[in-house]
Computed example of a mutant assay.
Amino acid sequence: MDSEPRMASMNEKDYYAILGVSKDASTDEIRKAFQQKARKLHPDVNKAPDAEERFKEVSEAYAVLSDEQKRSRYDAMRSGSPFGAPAYGGSTQGYGAPSDPFAGADPFGWGFPFGGTAYRRTSTRRSRAYNPRAGADVTIDVELDQETARKGTRRGVTYQRYVACDVCHGSGSVVSEHAETCPTCGGSGHISLDLTGLFGFGVMEMECPECEGAGKVVADPCEACGGSGRVLSASEVVVDIPANSHDGDEVRVKGMGNAGTNGSSSGDFVCRVGVAAERVNALQARGFQTVGFMLPFLVLGAVSGTIVSMLPFLVIMAVIAGMQISRGGGVGHGGTWWKKAATHVGNGVLSGLLLALLMVLMFQCSPYARYSGGAGV
């Protein structure tokens, strides 16, 4: 299932804590604190795995706090709630996109009647970025036995997903019809930090922490969804799995996946059918690939008249293939299983053919081939 992760937004971060200064620190104190941390964390000096990420973080903090206008806007954004909700447009709850709906919870309940009770909650995510994105599909796997797959079945599912916000009708904005240019980056989606005077490193460019690289922000964010245009909710869907379904088949319900942000289209709900009896497991797959791998050498031996010399190699490969298929559960039944097995054989044939051709080319270029007049292959 796609949880559509996003980077932490501007007012989720405590820039003062990152730099280790108080909220009433002077510009000079902020500059000195940044210099000390940047010297220790710059990737050219610090080889720790997280040094580059921490350097970018302190640079981002300095870029905002060293600019009076950006600092004032940042302080205003964090003054509205314990999470640092913004104060733009008179909003009292801040802005944001929903957090991961599937963290720490089983998103599915099967059977009739539906076990889940529809619920809705607002987000604790704080961001006013205007970033229209199509919603991701919600995908589940359902295992069926062969008889059920042959007859077909109906399944009810209760699951969590993003849905369009009822208050702003999915736009993310209550009053304004259009997004506005990000005041932090001026619409570029990036902010620049000149480190030439401090360390001689030149200009560093990073993603704007307020618009998250979009260049636009929601002018008057909806308090219910935080400006994203969608909220987390429980949904129910009935999936009709048709008769004669096979392992790997998909049943798609249009528009029942995650809603898009800021009015974008919704994804689909996808039910992926699994039939264990039709599935070629990993060991069986390796066995059939081994069978395919030896076939080009069998043909090469027959054509060149060297089948006798290749016999030990072919016997060893056949034994290995047999052991792999046997340990994987043996040979399955049904046309779908054999089609998948044949696909693995074909993959093995391609690998074996490439190696066989390489061996022929190497022989043709060898001194022995020139001495024997090319005979023997």
Rank of each mutant, 00 (worst) to 15 (best):
P5T: 06
I316T: 15
F297N: 03
F313V: 15
S91A: 12
L350F: 13
L195M: 12
G94H: 02
N244G: 02
E207Y: 04
R78T: 04
L353T: 11
L193V: 08
S22I: 03
F313I: 14
Q324T: 01
Q364I: 06
G20Q: 08
V273S: 01
A375K: 13
P296R: 05
K56Q: 07
G373R: 04
R327Q: 15
I191T: 01
D220L: 04
P242H: 12
G84K: 00
D28F: 05
A321K: 10
Q93M: 10
M294P: 05
K254C: 01
S99A: 14
A342S: 09
G335Y: 04
N46E: 14
C182P: 13
M206Y: 09
T92E: 09
I140N: 00
V64L: 13
G346L: 01
G109A: 07
K70S: 10
A224Y: 08
E212V: 03
A63H: 05
L232E: 09
A285D: 06
A17R: 01
P86C: 13
S264R: 03
Q146H: 01
G96L: 02
I241E: 00
V237C: 00
Q35L: 00
V331M: 12
P82I: 14
R54I: 02
D141S: 08
N262G: 05
M317W: 13
F313W: 05
L193Q: 10
E57N: 12
P221W: 02
A302L: 01
A285S: 07
E57K: 12
G111Q: 06
R125V: 11
R6T: 05
V377R: 13
V280N: 11
S66W: 08
Y16I: 07
A302M: 12
F112I: 10
A243C: 01
G111M: 11
G257E: 02
A234M: 11
S3C: 09
G373T: 05
A341Q: 06
V345R: 03
F199E: 15
A243S: 13
V377S: 07
Y162V: 00
M1E: 14
P221L: 06
I30P: 03
A219R: 09
V308A: 09
G322I: 13
T261K: 01
T124R: 14
Q35R: 10
G84S: 06
E53N: 12
V142E: 04
G111W: 08
Q364C: 11
R230L: 07
R126G: 02
L283F: 12
V231F: 06
N244E: 13
C168R: 00
S366F: 11
P107G: 13
G348A: 07
E12H: 03
Q146T: 12
G352V: 02
I30T: 06
Q93P: 05
G352S: 04
D166L: 09
Q93K: 12
E52D: 15
N258Y: 07
G135T: 14
N11G: 01
Q160S: 11
L283A: 14
E177H: 09
G226M: 08
A63P: 00
V251Q: 00
A369H: 13
A33C: 04
G187K: 06
V231H: 05
V315C: 04
A134V: 09
P209D: 12
